[in-house]
Amino acid sequence: MNADLTQKMQAWRHHLHRMPELGYQEHRTAEFLAARLAGMGYAPVTGLGGTGLVARLQGQGLRPPIGLRADMDALPIPEETGLDYASVNPGVMHACGHDGHMAMLLGAAQALRHGPPPPGDVWFIFQPAEETGAGARRMIEDGLFRIAPVARVFGLHNWPDLPQGRFSACVGAQMAAVDQFDITVTGRGCHAAMPQSGQDALLAASQIHQMLQSVVARNIDPLESGVVSVTQIHGGTAYNVLPERVEMRGCTRSLSEATAQLIHDRMSAICASVAAGFGLRIDLERRRGYPVLNNTAEEVAIARAAAARALGPEAVDPAPRPSMASEDFAFMLQERPGCYAFLGTATGEGHRLHSPTYRFNDAILPMGAAWWMALAGGAEAPGSV
């Protein structure tokens, strides 16, 4: 990767970092990307999934088309980095590195445009609303794979849990499914001095909270993975009143549909038993989120081989581990075989994803772009690396 393109990618990222936009609001971001792509000689197709866009690099027709995807949206987090290119949009920040993902894919698009034609067509996919809006699904519904008829699709995320430059991709589950839940406990409010006259919704909620922690510990096979997290409990407005209603909210995560269903079934049973024991009403609502992100074996082999060529064989993690975080790239992998990978960024500074102090590591920009280029120019599945 030449120094001029590396500097250009850094400038692009810093510009995008200054102007973060939330999901489905990435209008200026999309305009910036479309202008850069047009300046390289591409003819971007805009408006997919609302604010998404794609561009095609014509290949030699020796290999089926492939898709390379970067996400576009920022997070509703006030930035606290103190960077001279910090967000100018109050309360919004690129705290997950999507600015870097876009810059790396733009860099690859420019380098590939000025090189020999790749073996097959390459489609650059810039996707909105990854964080909470299921932008991948929206792009698919808008005809993504009809407009960009790719045979395989690949994605990449910077990963502070791995050393800088480390490449990691699992066969099968790479990231978890996530569901959200709402539990409403409805009892009978009363004066705190006369608890016998009411039905204590708060006490029932505390019982539910404790019992939910037994689901993973005592119902799920220790060799499987699951998480149940209560993240909110709301109830009461006075010091001397037991409230009639308490609301609990949270999320569950799993690496298989069977585990996700088991967690829901056990939560339903716990709510029913506590309701019977306390003589009050408990309602559980489950909202399905992103599915398990499953990488396919052949595409993982292709991705790992490309990483070995671009970054060196020593960069490829021989024992990759999945993450219990979630990603809507899973919807694309339900439609096409592919691979979603992590590229390590850790330097010891300790800045975490989704943190107001998170800082993208610019040193990985040429690494990520080099991997995209190796994928675009690579051969068919070469076997494991």
Rank of each mutant, 00 (worst) to 15 (best):
M1H: 14
D4V: 14
A11P: 10
W12Q: 10
H17L: 11
H17N: 13
R18I: 10
L22G: 11
G23I: 11
Y24C: 09
E26W: 09
A30K: 06
A34M: 07
R36W: 04
V45L: 15
L48S: 01
T51H: 07
G52L: 03
L57E: 05
Q60W: 00
G61R: 08
R63E: 01
P65E: 06
G67Y: 07
L68E: 04
R69E: 02
D71E: 15
A74D: 11
A74N: 12
E79Y: 10
A86H: 07
A86C: 13
V88K: 13
N89R: 10
V92P: 01
A95K: 00
G97Q: 00
D99A: 00
A111D: 15
G115I: 12
P116M: 09
G120M: 07
D121G: 05
V122Y: 04
I125V: 12
P128N: 01
E130D: 03
G135M: 00
G135H: 01
R138K: 13
D142A: 15
L144G: 00
L144T: 04
I147R: 15
I147S: 09
V150E: 04
F154Y: 15
R166D: 07
D179T: 07
A192D: 01
A193V: 02
Q199V: 07
A201W: 03
Q213S: 10
V216I: 15
V216D: 06
Q232F: 00
Y239C: 06
L242F: 00
E244N: 06
E244L: 01
R245W: 02
V246E: 04
R249M: 05
R253P: 04
S254P: 04
T259R: 06
L262A: 12
H264N: 13
A269S: 14
I270Q: 12
C271T: 14
A275H: 09
A276K: 09
G277C: 11
F278R: 11
F278H: 15
G279C: 09
L280M: 10
P291G: 09
T296L: 04
A297C: 11
E298N: 12
I302G: 05
A303D: 01
R304P: 05
A308S: 12
A308L: 08
L311A: 11
P320E: 05
P322G: 07
S323Y: 03
S326K: 02
M332V: 00
G338Y: 09
C339G: 08
A341P: 12
T345H: 10
A346N: 15
G348H: 12
Y358H: 11
R359Q: 15
W372E: 00
W372K: 02
W372C: 02
A379W: 00
V385N: 03
V385F: 07
